[in-house]
Design a protein around this nucleic acid. Structure first.
Length: 831
DNA sequence: GGCCCTGTTCTTTTT
DNA sequence: GAACAGGGCC
């Protein structure tokens, strides 16, 4: 244990400056268990960091006795930094990490107890899916109706509940052939993981619990070390995580106390359990679908008798209008402890509502507002766009690119999920962990070496017959009697992997190869990059770029972690979360799902796609408790906004390439009318008795009272066939938006007349914005030029900025208002 | 063994 | 409208 560095100037008192009474209580309370019920924006990170800093500043704890668990790596990094800032750099030795990272750290040290080596690999969900696919195929389980995702989901659920195959067989009916089959799959899956010296995501938690339960003396090591355990986002913990916390905070029995311990002993010679602090908000529990159990937080006081509960209700983030909307929505969830967020900051601006004709129309509105706000001084990085499903990004991205909105997608199809990256990672896994058969099989034929399924099966059969690992079968390929070409290919691959692995030996004369060198050796040695670059296919070129990017990531890792190892690098790669990609200084608008948004905050938030079947999502609405969870998700979205909140939706939404009618979300009804300033309300867009929720119907009078809202294009629109339920009545109620949003779409592009091709097939509408791929790079434009845009009609160039592919034209359209366009891609022509 | 075509299914959210 | 699996063909 290191000596505490001087804690200059920090006193327990100074850490309380600027905190409200509840926050102070949460920082200073000392006892075995503390639950901090922290409403959105109530300063819980501040409380947690001050609590940790206080423990250290007052010398109640060494940094190494602190274990703080957060939801994402980014949150962990932020907390570490903030504690460090409070203490002047004394955060060394603390464990601040995610559940998964903490478990990996423990498992690496203790792997032998579980029959693993410390270089085990971690299977992400794609990896375990691949493994399950193989098993389902081998057992022909699909004949019994098993699908890969269903099996994967079920196994994950069982693991989260700490139910292993043996336990499952006790619960299962022995008559049901489906249960028997599933048990077979589960058993085989577990066996394969073990053989591969690999853990899946759920194992990281579950196996750590198993380890602690099976080896109390091992558990005691950690129980003694961590005197203060703090858990953030406690409402989203699952059973395995709960069990882990319980294990970590258990009293150490006298028999497990080592003789040389310096920890204080209790009366019987044991060591009392660590003190536990959990922070959470049951209104923000949004991960039940992956096993999070809200009872962990609601039953906390029962689980930990004598626990103190502190409520943080004052919100320091949002305006009162935003909070009122949030409160009004969440109030509809029954069986919750009533909690009301309040702010001392004043009402603020109204929430802005907008209904577009289509998802593209909605996206255009968002893009225009982003530009408008940016012009008034709001930084792009202070704005975020949220959506329920990743599929919604398509329309947003298309419009954002065309409108020259600088944006960043958070999550979605992640870099590390790309096939080419997974391939390179598989090379690394096979190098670091030769037992990893799945990784080895993955790279067997990529790049193509003429090793097909037949050869793979031959290798596998050989391995089975001789009872040797797959990799050994590869080394002995000449004994199998395959064709000379195939044999040579396998010999070469095996040599590459073995030689690269040998270079990792630290006792090598030149020292162990770095991660960057290892990646380079594999990518070059396998000719993976070379083959991609030579293919001439533009998609392959993009893949090659990704691989090069990955090589750079590895080099960067070397620079930042001089003592890092390949195994540690792989761990980091496996455990990156969507939110970790966030870069505060990127200067772009962030796009992400509502789930990813948890724990973040922005000056301006756009909540898009606020429609039935999207939020609440069609799939979720069926599940027990699903509707309530969806409402919490919506609540989380609202409470991310500091000053400005937009709620947007569309009348029609593209799904499966088809356009479908969308209805306003029921949650919109739950927000008091006076809080929302509808630029275009759903009522304007869709009224025709009976199809929309009643409350929106009831608001109708308000709109009818206003003048100047005659619809444009109603005639043409009304004759349009094939639009599902969007019929004449809908069009009649459709106004011309005050600023011309959406209505432009109903006009003829050149004249603004109401003749827009009503009789054309609906494809025409959908493709209008998305369809054209063009390149206007050569178009010369300057101030004063007149142009015509497919959607916005004619306009005058106001300014042109940027160069080449990033040239942006600011245009005053005659009817559609001012817009920014990316010249290269905009559907425009010069007049 | 590899390529290309077709049909199918899919979309809820993620460590 | 894409990604993927399966089948047919070279």
């Amino acid at each position: 244990m290191t000596l505490l560095p001087p804690v200059s100037g920090v006193t327990a008192d100074s850490l309380l400056d600027g905190l409200n009474p509840q926050q102070r209580e949460a920082v200073t309370y000392r006892g075995p268990a503390l639950l901090i019920v922290a409403g959105a924006g109530s300063g819980k990170t501040r409380v947690l960091t001050h609590r940790i800093a206080g423990l250290i500043a007052s010398r109640e704890a060494w940094p190494s006795q602190i274990l703080a668990i957060t939801f994402t790596n980014k949150a962990a990094a932020e907390m570490r930094e903030r504690v460090g800032a409070l203490l002047g750099g004394a955060a060394e030795g603390m464990w601040i990490s995610t559940f998964h990272s903490a478990c990996v750290r423990i498992l690496r040290r203790e792997a032998e107890h579980l029959g693993y080596t410390q270089s085990f690999t971690i299977y992400d969900s794609a990896d375990s899916k691949a493994l399950i696919r193989r098993i389902v195929k081998e057992l022909e389980a699909d004949l019994l109706g098993f699908t890969v995702p269903s099996v994967q989901g079920r196994i994950s659920k069982l693991k989260n509940e700490l139910v292993d195959p043996d336990e499952f067989s006790r619960q299962a009916s022995d008559r049901d052939p489906r249960d028997a089959m599933f048990l077979d799959i589960y058993r085989r899956y577990e066996r394969e993981l073990r053989r591969a010296n690999a853990f899946d995501f759920d194992d990281l938690l579950g196996q750590t619990v198993t380890l602690f339960r099976a080896f109390p003396e091992v558990a005691a090591k950690y129980q003694r070390r961590f005197r203060h355990v703090l858990v953030d986002e406690y409402q989203d913990t699952n059973h395995a995580q709960y069990a882990l916390i319980r294990e970590l905070t258990k009293r150490v029995e006298p028999k497990d106390v080592p003789l040389d311990t310096r920890t204080e002993l209790d009366a019987e010679g044991g060591i009392e359990g660590a003190s536990l602090t959990v922070v959470g908000d049951s209104d923000q529990s949004i991960y039940a679908f992956r096993g999070a159990d809200i009872r962990n937080i609601t039953d906390f006081e029962r689980d930990f008798p004598g626990a103190r509960v502190v409520l943080l209700e004052q919100n320091y983030r949002s305006t009162q209008n935003i909070l009122e909307a949030a409160n009004a929505v969440i109030r509809n969830n029954f069986d919750r402890v009533d909690k009301k967020l309040w702010s001392a900051d004043g009402a603020g601006e109204k929430i802005v509502g907008f209904t577009g004709y289509s998802g593209h129309d909605e996206a255009q509105f968002v893009a225009d507002e982003i530009h408008r706000l940016h012009d008034t001084g709001v930084a792009y990085g202070e704005m975020a766009v949220f959506y329920r499903t990743n599929a919604q990004t398509r329309a947003l991205e298309e419009i954002f690119i065309r409108s020259a909105v600088p944006y960043r997608l958070i999550g979605g199809t992640k870099f590390y999920e790309r096939a080419e990256i997974k391939d390179v990672v598989a090379y690394l896994m096979a190098t670091a962990n030769p037992a990893d058969e799945l990784a080895t099989r993955r790279i067997l034929n990529s790049p193509k070496r003429g090793i097909g399924p037949a050869t793979e099966t031959a290798l596998w059969d050989f391995a089975q017959k001789r009872d040797v690992p797959f990799r050994e079968a590869m080394r002995r390929v000449d004994e199998i009697g395959l064709g000379p070409k195939v044999t040579r290919a396998i010999v070469e691959l095996t040599r590459l992997l073995d030689e690269t692995a040998a270079a990792l030996d630290p006792d090598r004369p030149t020292g162990a190869a770095t991660v960057g060198e290892t990646v380079h050796a594999l990518v070059a040695g396998s000719r993976y990059l070379e083959v991609l670059m030579a293919s001439g296919n533009p998609q392959d070129e993009a893949r090659a770029e990704n691989v090069e990017e990955f090589v750079n990531v590895a080099k960067e890792y070397d620079k930042n972690n001089p003592d890092g190892s390949l195994v540690e690098f792989l761990t980091e790669v496996a455990l990156v979360a969507a939110a970790d990609e966030l870069d505060d200084e990127s200067g772009s608008v962030s796009l992400m799902t509502l789930h990813t948004a948890k724990g973040l905050e922005y000056d301006t938030v756009f909540l898009t796609g606020i429609e039935e079947d999207l939020i609440p999502h069609r799939m979720a609405a069926q599940e027990p408790g699903g509707a309530a969870e969806e409402r919490r998700l919506f609540y989380v979205g609202i409470t991310r906004a500091r000053r400005r909140l937009y709620l947007t939706l569309a009348m029609t939404r593209a799904q499966f390439g088809e356009s479908a009618v969308a209805m306003p979300s029921r949650y919109l009804d739950e927000i008091p009318t006076e809080l929302i300033d509808w630029r275009v309300s759903p009522l304007d867009a869709t009224s025709r008795g009976g199809t929309q929720p009643r409350a929106l119907n009831a608001r109708r009078g308000e709109w009818e009272g206003r003048g100047g809202r005659r619809p444009v294009g109603s005639e043409a629109y009304s004759t349009a066939g094939g639009y599902g339920r969007v019929g004449p009545g809908d069009a009649e109620a459709r106004p011309q938006g005050e600023r011309g949003y959406s209505s432009v779409r109903f006009r003829d592009a050149d004249a603004g007349r109401e003749t827009r091709n009503a009789s054309k097939p609906k494809q025409k509408w959908i493709n209008e914005v998305t369809g054209q791929v063009r390149d206007n790079s050569a178009m010369e434009l300057e101030r004063g030029d007149r142009i015509r845009h497919v959607d916005f009609g004619e306009g005058t160039i106001r300014a042109v900025t940027g160069t080449d592919a990033k040239r942006i034209a600011e245009v005053d359209f005659d009817t559609a208002g001012r817009k920014k366009l990316l010249v290269k891609l905009a559907p425009i022509e010069k007049l």
